[in-house]
Write a protein that binds this DNA or RNA. Sequence first.
DNA 1: GTCTATATCGGGATAGAC
DNA 2: GTCTATCCCGATATAGAC
Lengths: 200, 200
Amino acid sequence: MEDFNTEKKILEAAKAVFIEKGKDGTTMQAIADKAEINKALLHYYFRNKDKLFMTVLEDTLFRFLPRIETTFLSDIDFFEKIRIVVKDYITLLSENPFIPAFMINEMNRNPDGLFEQLLKSGIRIDLVFETIKKEIIKNNITNITPKHFFINLLSLCIFPFATRPLMQRVLFENDTKAYDQFIEERKTLTAEFIIQAIKA
Amino acid sequence: MEDFNTEKKILEAAKAVFIEKGKDGTTMQAIADKAEINKALLHYYFRNKDKLFMTVLEDTLFRFLPRIETTFLSDIDFFEKIRIVVKDYITLLSENPFIPAFMINEMNRNPDGLFEQLLKSGIRIDLVFETIKKEIIKNNITNITPKHFFINLLSLCIFPFATRPLMQRVLFENDTKAYDQFIEERKTLTAEFIIQAIKA
DNA sequence: GTCTATATCGGGATAGAC
DNA sequence: GTCTATCCCGATATAGAC
């Protein structure tokens, strides 16, 4: 097994374990096992656990955010943007359901590291806010503060994933299929909820 | 220092550290330091870290939930209920801002333990759902699934606290006062957002 | 009930052979 | 580049004196 493939295998294994167990809960041994290699090899490729963790973060997590920006800056009806963003975002999360809890955990453990990564991603939330302000001026939506709008949107999309382990038990007697269905419904319902809330 | 006071001091110290650092990030030493006692004494009162942790959980966290139930089962206007619950809940969270991240972390680490605690608290969400259904029948609100309504409400209240460390940086250049103000606004704005979204 | 000292263990990291 | 063996440290937990 040559260099490139091993590194990739490690990163994939590390991502899987980190997301499932959190940074603290993850052991190098567990990653090595999953990657079917030796523990020492991890240190050969990535000097220590911190560096490995940061690499995983850069490599995978921040592919999420640019999508919001792109959609909001595009030239379509504002309510349609909301429908697209919500659906897009929930779909993406469905494929990576453990990321929200992981990110929340991480941002409370080490906010600076995460923030730094975020800056690197070059996202411009201010531009998104501008598009919202324009809609207010055009009288298409109520006079909502862009920051509140933004946080409300994220809350409604992300929270059900972050709290899934408990919510699935509380609301659906731990029925996985039922919760999947619930999430599926939210792909459209959430957008309509938001639109109702803000339309003028 | 006799028995009772030491135990109490330990529980308070443990709560503070657990909430700030999470379960994994907390060391017995840190708790001992905060309680101004010796490490060994922790094991004398609570056999091990797990038992101490569980005790803290039982003792403090689940005082939160019954408040939602009480308000929703009371006999006032439904929209007014929403205003009260939102304000009440966000206020409560303002006084315990680390709890959401802590709970999310914990529910992803060990959902069964948390769920068990929740059952012990005896909360009856189904009763809350009943009140929502009645409002739909009375045509006061749109035909929203109670579960979606419930999760939307929780999302909008809790998420800004769970993600505060990052959001404060991203939205307010890490200005604590500004974020406090933002939260303060949400005590009323969030309820109106929800009411707009669901009113018939 | 509270302390000091210590046993024990798990996990990150390194040395060194191949 | 990959392995085995080992070091080392931090953290839980216990023993035992007072």
